[in-house]
């Protein structure tokens, strides 16, 4: 059960939680970045005229949404990257690169499947008249996408992307299973050292909450400000 002594014992390892926090933030940031780029490619593939590109991207999205993230993570770490020697150095002096990267890859691949659907719906929500006006001015399909459709689509889907970011922060906790030293791995280390886990779990929950709650509040704030801009 929880006890004051338990918390005191656990808090001696506070730096591990701090490092875990930094690691979780880094994992999430890299994941949205790579996930978004990949998602953009998949979304454009899915909307292209080519049956092959459409097929490949549809299969990708369905497979990644229909299988557990844990399985995807293990396949990336134990199968895809099993025979690849990643450089072993520590980012910020404590994040092990060779564990961090497989985590980022798996999370990015996974969230790209979800983000691509968000991006696709955002693009499809833009009135066809915008594309027609742009094309009638002589702009190419790609120029139209780049200067007319995407800027409007991204503005519309920013809240959904931000929500996906919060989801990624929470789901990144799974990466402790391949030895990424994020917040959950701090819990595990404390358990090994003190033979107590309850207090460490409570602290981990608090740290996650302090990370995600303000994030979603900030998002909500910008969402409100942006919709105000629309009304002018």
């Amino acid at each position: 059960m929880l006890s004051i002594e338990g918390f005191q014992k656990t808090l001696k390892y506070w730096t591990m939680f701090e490092e875990g926090l930094v690691c979780t933030v880094m994992l999430s940031l890299f994941t949205v970045l790579f996930g978004f780029i990949l998602a953009m490619i998949i979304a454009l593939m899915r909307m292209s005229k080519s049956h092959i590109l459409k097929g490949v991207s549809s299969v990708y999205v369905e497979v990644f949404r229909a299988t557990p993230l844990m399985v995807q993570l293990f396949i990336v770490y134990h199968v895809l990257l099993a025979d690849i020697d990643l450089p072993t150095f520590k980012m910020f002096g404590f994040i092990r690169f060779e564990r961090f990267i497989p985590g980022v890859i798996a999370l990015s691949l996974n969230s790209a499947a979800y983000l691509s659907e968000i991006i696709r719906s955002g693009i499809q929500s833009i009135d066809l008249g915008q594309t027609e006006a742009s094309r009638s001015l002589g702009m190419s399909q790609w120029q139209t996408m780049q200067h007319v459709v995407l800027p409007q689509a991204i503005k519309n889907i920013l809240p959904a992307i931000a929500n996906e970011f919060v989801t990624i922060i929470k789901e990144s906790s799974i990466c402790w299973t391949i030895g990424v030293q994020e917040i959950m791995s701090a819990v595990n280390s404390v358990k090994a050292a003190t033979f107590t886990i309850a207090e460490a779990l409570i602290i981990a929950a608090c740290v996650y909450f302090c990370l995600t709650f303000p994030t979603s509040k900030i998002i909500a704030y910008f969402e409100r400000r942006m919709s105000r801009g629309d009304r002018r």
């Binding site: 008249g129 915008q130 027609e132 006006a133 742009s134 009638s136 001015l137 409007q152």
Partner: peptide, 10 residues
């Protein structure tokens, strides 16, 4: 040049 019923300004 083309002009549309609903303007289609960006």
């Amino acid at each position: 040049g083309m002009v549309f019923q609903h303007f289609n300004l960006f």
